[in-house]
Design a binder for these strands. Structure first.
Lengths: 156, 156
DNA sequence: AATACAATGGTCAAAGATGGTCAATGTATC
DNA sequence: GATACATTGACCATCTTTGACCATTGTATT
């Protein structure tokens, strides 16, 4: 069996029905599997992305860690759809606004959160001397970043 | 748990709703935690700055001390200050992050709202091929836009 | 008063402890 | 053999902890 598959299984075993979050130390895990620490990053990058329904959070330095959160299935599907099909690499102000309204309607965010999201991607927030295309690309990045955060909260 | 986190918690426990000020002896605290005295300075410098909403006052020599005050400002005053003095036309990622944390600590925003705000101004959300100065300016716009939304809600 | 000494706290650079990135290389699959 | 996937290692970034040396203030001695 491939090393990467073994590491993937190991992590997924820790993420059970009840445990939707796991914290690990990169170096410890690497030592346990007797591989390069960067191998852990490879596994995370190829099997624990938002696309797969996971959110990663980490911290360097003494007492550093890597935390993996598993998104709820229906939530993750909804958000992945939003992330890929509707946001993509570029999104207009109007489309973004509609999308945020729908998040609210589906109760994935509170009214207050929706209002803040609207404010963050509003035309006035992004009034810069750049092309509309650049703005749409920027808006997509900001929106996706916020959506990932929403996803992280929903599972908790 | 990290030493620095433990010391941070220790101090924050002393700063309760009623106790907005605490006085401590650097050497005593260091001995209590069995660490280098300068570790106390590190904690203060990274977790009790004005950005975090604290003011430090200290005195050397015999009977020396370190006093920590938690800033207390009324809501509208606070938001105007944040909007104009602290954000301005440009703000770094770190400063923005501290500001949002403070909003959360003062309960002007919910944890979910704070997380979304953090996501909106995070380095990854603004990873564009533009200069740092441009990013800081953009971040300021986005943050101010969101703060206006928060202020609108608080007033109601 | 002036001086010495003790008692504090402050600074800063180095070392330690983690995790991240990326390009080179190896391996399996078509 | 070409292509995609896996593995490694060198180098980088960030956060924490410590220690040597410095600055300030209070107190005891002259």
């Amino acid at each position: 069996m491939r090393l990467s598959d073994a590491i993937e299984q190991f992590i997924k075993t820790m993420l059970t029905q009840t445990e939707q979050e796991v914290e690990l130390k990169r170096n410890e895990l690497a030592e346990y599997f007797n591989c390069a620490p960067s191998q852990i990053n490879y596994v995370l990058a190829t099997r624990f992305t938002p696309d797969h329904g996971y959110i990663i959070e980490s911290r360097r330095g003494g007492g550093g860690y890597i935390r993996i959160f598993r998104m709820e299935q229906d939530t993750s599907e909804q958000l992945l759809y939003l992330l890929h099909e509707r946001v993509g690499d570029s999104i207009s102000a109007l489309e973004a606004s509609h999308l945020i309204m729908q998040l609210h309607e589906r109760e994935l965010v509170t009214p207050g959160e929706a209002a803040i999201m609207q404010a963050a991607v509003s035309p006035s927030a992004l009034s810069l001397p750049i092309s509309t295309a650049m703005k749409d690309a920027l808006r997509a990045k900001i929106l996706k970043s916020m959506l990932l955060e929403v996803a992280r909260k929903v599972k908790q």
